[in-house]
């Protein structure tokens, strides 16, 4: 599997701690990526500014600032606006997928996901470009 970019640091944003644990386990267990966690859109913005991740995985449905809003905010910040973002959602209808992609998301991971194939799924999305 080849990717255009090398990932070292990933920011994972989800309000559900169980999902954070599971996804982190899959990613850190199977790859050499360092996974930083955030539990809300606001936390994601500050953590992203701090750590400058190579990839952000963003839950769509979150209380307060939801995923798309967070992406919008990220795009406003000059230093963060080219970080690739992948959405994670339990509801992915075709029109939504199109909408998210128009917003600049690289792709979508659907929930429920399999933690053991999560890294491959992400690589797959990134290599599609």
């Amino acid at each position: 599997m080849t990717t255009a970019m090398e990932i070292k640091q990933v920011l994972l944003v989800d309000d559900d701690s169980n999902i954070r644990i599971l996804a982190q386990m899959g990613l850190e267990g199977l790859t050499d990526w360092k996974v930083e966690l955030a539990s809300s859109g606001a936390e994601a913005l500050s953590k992203a500014t701090e750590t400058k991740p190579d990839l952000i995985i963003l839950d769509v449905m979150m209380p307060g600032m939801d995923g798309p809003t967070t992406l919008g905010e990220l795009r406003k910040v000059e230093t963060l606006n080219d970080i690739p973002v992948i959405f994670m959602t339990a509801k992915a209808q075709t029109h939504e997928v199109e909408l998210y992609q128009k917003m600049g998301a690289k792709g979508i991971i659907t929930k429920p996901f399999d933690p053991m194939s999560l890294p491959d799924d992400i690589q797959g999305i990134l290599s599609k470009g």
Binding site: D16, I19, A90, P112
Partner: peptide, 27 residues
């Protein structure tokens, strides 16, 4: 809806497919 949505994603990801499916139907 939000609660059902969450249970669907979480339970399903942890391998409890049937629970996830019921939550999905409820949603």
């Amino acid at each position: 809806m939000a609660v059902a949505h969450k249970v669907k994603g979480t339970a399903g990801s942890y391998g409890f497919t049937k629970v996830g499916q019921f939550a999905e139907r409820i949603e």
